[in-house]
């Protein structure tokens, strides 16, 4: 999962301090793995370098330097591209997908489209596996089936999430 895109997405709702960003991230996505402040700092410098964010202002004072970051137009385009690109189907990818869905909801983008796109990507993989399975021997079949069942589990999650988008939107807005 891409911390850079996530932080960019969080910035879309308005300029924030680095520390605010960490807090928002932890609150929405961090759950069991909070972000180190260092990670935020290095990510932001990378984004600055690529011109995806800009420094909106610096608050002088005690403690660490407090820069306020704002997203640039290029940053918005980058978030959009990222959201629209389906993830490569693989195991345990729901946390990335979850992040994408929540970010889409936060930034008032169409979350259902993300899910549909992802499903399509999954199906593409499943078609390939199915095809391999049909042509292959028993070993191939068993291997492909294992992958197929995992992908199917993802897809079920996608369906379920799609059915619960409205509820999730309420929860995120809070």
């Amino acid at each position: 999962m891409s911390i850079g895109h996530t932080l960019l997405g969080l910035l879309e709702s308005g300029p924030r301090h680095g520390y605010d960003l960490k807090r928002a991230f932890d609150e929405k996505f961090g759950h069991d793995r909070p972000l180190h402040y260092g990670q935020v700092y290095s990510t932001m410098s990378r984004l600055l370098k690529h011109g995806l964010v800009e420094v909106d202002g610096i608050e002088a004072g005690g403690g660490p330097e407090r820069k306020r970051y704002a997203i640039t137009d290029a940053g918005v385009t980058d978030v959009e591209r990222w959201l629209a690109t389906p993830e490569k189907p693989e195991e345990y990818l729901q946390s990335t997908l979850y992040t994408k869905v929540v970010l889409a909801l936060l930034t008032h983008r169409n979350a259902a489209d993300i899910l549909d796109t992802q499903r399509s990507e999954h199906l593409r993989s499943m078609r390939i596996l199915t095809d391999r399975k049909r042509k292959g021997d028993l070993a191939d079949q068993l291997i492909c089936d294992h992958a197929l069942f995992h992908l199917e589990a993802d897809l079920r999650w996608l369906e379920l999430t799609a059915a619960r988008l409205d509820k999730l939107r309420e929860a995120v807005a809070r």
């Binding site: 259902a112 499903r119 399509s120 199906l123 499943m126 079920r156």
Partner: peptide, 15 residues
Amino acid sequence: EARVAAYSDREIVVR
């Protein structure tokens, strides 16, 4: 069912 849909060439989604 996704595993059945995997026998298709492409899919359309109705919502």
